[in-house]
């Protein structure tokens, strides 16, 4: 167990180190930021001073060391656009993104679990076929289109919900349904697959023979057995939702990291881009790591293999 923990932690650290290299390389690929930051009337001496200040005149490997030291301190530089520390800007936007991802997750569970269980209980029925159709639709509908269609129906045709903004509970409905519907497709399929397997297992068959009520078998025994992979998957899905939130935030003008990232790319505000990518990446990786470790604790077979 301790060995598994250390290995997994070591892997995560290597991945993180590679990620910093990647972000550093990407940052350098974007070229010299001097003309973006300084006004066009700046003198050559100003430019040289700026390059020296940011270490842009030094060899690449030294620049990476400086970059890494700054990143570890949470210093991604000053936003070109807002003239504020990039990291602070992104940190302020992470709250709304986490809230949106959390509520969407809830929507995905509320839709996906019952649908998956129902389909597993009636294989080959019209219900199972409908659930399959639902899941393939959910996987194929890009979130921006789902969002626009929901806006069209519930904010334009029948104006009952706000199409954008943040602050009230009503603001959550359309974005969370958009993102939750997308995530519910894979939650449904995973629940379906695991429930099917659990229902086929020997102990469930045995309980049937013993005459234990069907409702009890399904909800208590089969579902509990199927829940470990489902819960694990939900954890990983949360990381995906943080990524998926980018597009949804854009559609609904949600003041989160995704919206900030897209704006920063469009405005070539590279410190913010780097801070947003790095922060989200660390968040997603931490969640994945915790899920992996929890899974190993709950199911000892994993760490032994």
């Amino acid at each position: 167990m301790a060995r598994f923990l250390l290995t997994r932690l070591g892997q995560a650290l290597v991945t993180l180190a590679l990620l910093t290299v990647l972000i550093f390389v990407l940052a350098r690929l974007t070229g010299d930021p001097t003309p973006l930051v300084l006004p066009s009337e700046a003198t050559e001496a100003d430019r040289a001073f700026f390059r020296q200040q940011y270490g842009l005149d030094r060899p690449v490997h030294e620049q990476y060391v400086v970059f890494l030291r700054n990143v570890l301190r949470g210093d991604f530089g000053i936003s070109f656009r807002y003239r504020e520390p990039a990291f602070d800007l992104v940190l302020a936007a992470i709250g709304p993104t986490l809230q949106l991802a959390g509520v969407s997750m809830l929507v995905a569970i509320l839709l996906g679990l019952p649908l998956g269980i129902a389909a597993a209980l009636r294989p080959g029925s019209w219900l199972a076929a409908t659930v399959r159709g639902y899941a393939s639709l959910g996987q194929a509908m890009p979130t921006f289109w789902t969002g626009l269609m929901l806006i069209f129906v519930f904010a334009i045709s029948i104006p009952v919900l706000p199409s954008s903004g943040y602050g009230t509970a009503a603001n959550f409905v359309l974005p969370a349904v958009t993102l939750g519907f997308y995530a519910s497709a894979s939650v449904t399929m995973l629940t379906w697959a695991n429930m099917t397997e659990a229902l086929r297992s020997d102990f469930v068959q045995m309980e049937r023979v013993l005459g234990i009520p069907r409702r009890l078998i399904v909800l208590k025994h089969a579902l509990r057995n199927a829940s470990l992979p489902i819960v694990t998957y939900l954890g990983l899905q949360f990381g995906l939702l943080l990524g998926g939130a980018v597009v949804t935030e854009r559609v609904f003008a949600w003041p989160g990291v995704g919206q900030m990232l897209v704006d920063a790319i469009l405005n070539r505000d590279y410190p913010v881009v780097q801070a947003a990518v790095m922060l989200t990446a660390v968040l997603v990786m931490t969640i994945n790591l915790v899920v992996d470790l929890l899974y190993a604790v709950l199911d000892p077979r994993v760490s032994r293999s």
């Binding site: 990620l19 990647l22 972000i23 990407l26 995906l240 990524g243 998926g244 990232l261 897209v262 881009v273």
Partner: peptide, 11 residues
Amino acid sequence: ALPFILMALAF
């Protein structure tokens, strides 16, 4: 390790 849309945006 990263959601693909985030990766794509970084690139």
